[in-house]
Design a protein around this nucleic acid. Structure first.
Lengths: 144, 144
DNA sequence: TATTGCTCGACAGAGAGACTGACGATCTGT
DNA sequence: ACAGATCGTCAGTCTCTCTGTCGAGCAATA
């Protein structure tokens, strides 16, 4: 059983990858096989009434070009629309379609279900603490 | 301050990415800019006396071709060698060079340093619990 | 021993997802 | 009115992963 010590990086990556497989596997089974993990950058950051491409890119921490690539894919599959901004001739507003909103809802639900399964495996208390510590870590990161 | 609830996936991904940036940034600063995160799949799984390509691929959960791509890069930069297996004419044994061993040592050291910084930010006790809960999660994953 | 089937690693090709650089169109502040 | 900043796009590149195919070598058996 000589448990070799894993790096913290690996301890984050392994559960993350498992979570991702679960969630996007279920999403595919529920009728959205075209949604890939990278698309979550759009769903996570898009506003209720739409957002600019540049805003999305900024929030997701990626280039406009990369975000455009993701948005194009989602637009082709009918999950978002991209319409001209009436207030700015250069800009376009990306909005979720009803189909896209269903996907977002599914993603949030699947995420919650996955978290509940984790709680079932390691215990409610521990799962709650795990979340809290991660939140604190993230807060520290964001503080600088 | 309307803290919106993040998914557990995001709470794993954000610290993971930050950790990765820290570690590979420092590694570059210490003279190994050619080592990229994907290469850790090799360093993490290679045995003390070398391993077969197929074994590495299996352990890393990727195809032989993908592992060969990573190994080729490391071999070109002098971090590993790939020599014929005397016991099996088909196989080749991938081994760390002294340079590769230095990289492995740096990676482990940088990982430990990063973990210590986390402990400094969220507290020793919490960091220890965080690691323990993640280990339990991973153990549960491996159990099936 | 000869054959049959499996395994090892390589070759070729593809695709996702990120990047940089350059650019025309448009907005904004002076 | 103009200079400079910003919006999104076009074109090209790179990393990292995948599939499919294949020749060479190993192992078990008829």
């Amino acid at each position: 059983m000589t448990e070799q010590r894993r790096t913290l990086g690996a301890l984050l990556r392994l559960p993350h990858d498992a979570l991702q497989r679960e969630i996007y596997g279920s999403l595919a089974a529920r009728g959205f096989p075209e949604i890939r993990p990278a698309h979550s950058a759009v769903f996570r950051h898009i506003g209720l009434h739409g957002s600019r491409l540049t805003t999305l890119a900024e929030r997701a921490g990626m280039t406009k070009q990369s975000m455009a690539y993701l948005v194009d894919g989602l637009a082709a599959a009918g999950h978002v629309t991209s319409t001209p901004d009436p207030d700015d001739g250069r800009a376009r507003i990306v909005r979720l379609t009803p189909k896209g909103e269903r996907v977002l809802a599914e993603l949030l639900a699947l995420s919650a279900e996955a978290e509940a399964r984790v709680a079932a495996r390691i215990g409610d208390r521990r799962a709650a603490r795990l979340r809290r510590y991660l939140e604190q870590w993230v807060a520290a990161l964001e503080a600088g």
